[in-house]
Amino acid sequence: MNDKNKIITGLVIFFLVVLFPFWFNLIFGAADASTAPEPELTEKAEKAETCVAETEHMRTEHMQILDQWRDTVVRDGQRIYVAENGKEYDPSLSNTCMDCHSNKEKFCDRCHNYASVNPYCWDCHTYPEETE
């Protein structure tokens, strides 16, 4: 065990590098990191009052719902969605979600950027501003 110093130095460097996101945020990013952005609703979305499910549920589970939608539409060909509230919807990201939430930047991107997730929906599906 003659390399004690080398090993300890190595370990310190290793942990510094591995813990980079934590100490970096602690020192430099505190202000930004603490406040989660609120998604903004369009007038149409406000008026509708309810989405295809409760707001809280949508907030946490919208990706699972979209996942289920795409599988059911693409693979089973079932294109009518009867939600919990009994209403019928066209299970379509472009045509249903984006119809109300036509403000992608303020509704989708804000949170996605904050959470640093980069869903590839928009590689194929259109959103309103894009086609106008």
């Binding site: 549920h57 060909g77 079932q78 009518i80 969605y81 009867v82 939600a83 919990e84 509230n85 299970p91």
Partner: peptide
């Protein structure tokens, strides 16, 4: 959540 579970159909 409570209430009826969401369902899919052909239309």
């Amino acid at each position: 959540d409570a209430g009826q579970r969401p369902q899919f159909s052909m239309g």
